[in-house]
């Protein structure tokens, strides 16, 4: 869930919040991966895929804006903030492109955009396994 805004008092607290954000974004990325599989195997109609991608996009953008609004407790957290921030931003961009392609019935573009998902997935997996 994306509901983890607010301030982080300690670096540990900040890492925990980063971890939750990464988990929520990972869920959206994985959902989009399944949607891409449906498209690749021609197992779903485009209206359904568009709705799935639209929801995933809304989830990931919510996570992104929530995470970026958390005040990092100190300089040591800035690096984490920018690194994860970049990944979240990429994830939002990728899913957006997929959603746009799906609404245009541009199967090829959708699958091309989906090629970025595995990388995002492993990055987000890394952040969701962060030690607290």
């Amino acid at each position: 869930m994306a509901g983890c805004a607010g301030s982080a008092r300690t670096a540990t607290d900040y890492r925990l919040k980063a971890r939750n954000s990464a988990k929520a974004a990972l869920s959206a990325v994985e959902t989009s991966t399944l949607a891409a599989r449906l498209v690749r195997e021609r197992r779903a109609f485009s209206t359904y895929v568009s709705v799935v991608l639209d929801s995933a996009e809304r989830d990931v953008t919510a996570v992104e804006s929530t995470f970026s609004s958390i005040q990092p407790p100190g300089k040591s957290s800035d690096q984490l903030r920018s690194a994860l921030g970049n990944v979240l931003n990429d994830a939002a961009d990728t899913i957006s492109s997929m959603r746009i392609a799906s609404r245009r019935d541009a199967r090829h573009d959708l699958l091309a955009a989906a090629d970025k998902l595995p990388k995002l997935q492993s990055d987000l997996q890394h952040y969701s396994d962060l030690p607290a």
Binding site: M1, K23, A24, S27, E30, T31, L34, V52, S55, D59
Partner: peptide, 9 residues
């Protein structure tokens, strides 16, 4: 897939 369900879709 570690999916958290937030939507009916």
């Amino acid at each position: 897939a570690n999916i958290q369900v937030n939507h009916l879709d």
